[in-house]
Amino acid sequence: MPALSGFLWLISYWLIGEVVIYFTALPISSGVIGMLLLCVTLAMRGRVSSSIAAAAQPLIALLAMLIMPGVVGVFFIIGELAGQWSAILIALLLGTLLSVVTTLWLLKRLIKPTHVR
């Protein structure tokens, strides 16, 4: 079962992340620490083992499904935040449009010149 041992690696890195946070009080989540550790480990070994790929690929593909149970919660707090929603929606929609424009404009200015030469 390569996927199973790969999954154990992922769990272990997450748990190591928890331990690191416990001792250092870093303001990062244990998943992020595990992600960085995994990336460093893979870079040192120079390749992705088939067991880690077998576990990581399906998990990444399911990312959208894994956030669904939480996302649905928003429909059940609609009443609690009555009167706040227009501010929240305007902030999110307008903020997202502005940041998308800024990101793409920045990237275009930074990357195009080297491309055209």
Binding site: F7, L10, V32, L36, V48, L59, L66, I67, P69, G73
Partner: peptide, 27 residues
């Protein structure tokens, strides 16, 4: 929703290892 969410913890707990898994595309 609370009852549903309690059961769905079985899925959401996988978010931990799924985050770690993002280290692979990063590499």
């Amino acid at each position: 929703y609370a009852t549903y969410h309690q059961g769905a913890t079985w899925l959401t707990v996988l978010l931990g290892p799924a985050t770690v898994a993002l280290g692979m595309p990063l590499y």
